[in-house]
């Protein structure tokens, strides 16, 4: 018998894939770049520069990031609209996680819009007006200047935590939606792994936010200082 896919089916599958493959993968690269800020402005700016030097960058940005993000976020908001939330009557952990996936998604919708306009494009009047794109060597100072405002730091910490949850638990959702993980035992293990991933992404991400406020972020500076000095002995003063 011929196989028939409905539109909704294909749109859902595409939504599930875009969450992991372009977006999840991109996020790992992104957080890695941000973590390099622990080792100071030069190291961070050089990593940003490296990204700017990737061949076909615009193509990758449009087809690997912007379009999948636009699709996943808009369709994600539509999916969230279908939810008939009932955590008060059925207060089970996975029902709460279902709700968190939608709350973090909704928050990310606004946060990512803000974040892109704020740093990628530099288009929010009253805030940073220099796009990081094309100004790699100013990347650190753009961010650290912005992070002198307390509320901006709070917004970014919330953004990092929401992403950590959404991507971490999204990893579990993906493996069950595609039939990789099946039994209850395997599900339990995967959820544990997903929550550990969320925790790690959250901790590393929050520390990266603070790395733009204070060298090495919240960690003892000695952890970063030595490695940084070894790699670039002539590093200029940091701030």
């Amino acid at each position: 018998m011929a196989i028939k896919f409905s539109t909704t089916f294909l749109l859902r599958k595409l939504h599930q894939v875009t969450g992991i493959v372009p977006l999840g993968m991109f996020y790992f690269v992104h957080i890695y770049t941000n973590v390099t800020a622990m080792n100071g402005p030069k190291v961070f700016n050089d990593h940003v520069q490296d990204i700017h030097d990737i061949p076909f960058l615009l193509f990758i940005e449009v087809f690997g990031i912007f379009l999948p993000l636009a699709y996943h976020s808009i369709y994600g908001v539509l999916i969230s609209g279908e939810a008939k939330v009932n955590v008060l009557s059925y207060p089970y952990a996975r029902n709460w996680f279902y709700l968190f996936q939608r709350i973090t998604g909704g928050f990310l919708f606004f946060f990512l819009l803000f974040h892109l306009l704020n740093f990628r494009f530099g288009l929010i009047p009253g805030l940073n007006m220099t796009p990081v794109a094309g100004h790699a060597q100013e990347a650190f100072s753009i961010v650290s200047t912005e992070f002198q405002k307390g509320w901006i730091v709070v917004v970014y910490i919330l953004g990092v935590l929401a992403t950590a949850w959404h991507l971490g638990y999204g990893f579990f959702l993906f493996v069950v939606d595609w039939g990789f993980v099946i039994s209850e035992k395997a599900q339990k293990l995967t959820i544990k792994a997903a929550l550990v991933l969320a925790l790690l992404l959250g901790l590393v991400g929050v520390n990266a936010v603070f790395a733009f406020v204070r060298p090495c972020g919240l960690l003892p500076q000695s952890l970063c200082e030595s490695s940084h000095v070894k790699r670039t002995p002539t590093a200029p003063a940091r701030f």
Binding site: S6, T8, R12, A83, Y90, Y98, L173, V176, D177
Partner: peptide, 12 residues
């Protein structure tokens, strides 16, 4: 359209 892909894994 109303098929399995609409599952949200809340597992109630």
């Amino acid at each position: 359209e109303n098929g399995i892909a609409n599952c949200g894994n809340a597992q109630n």
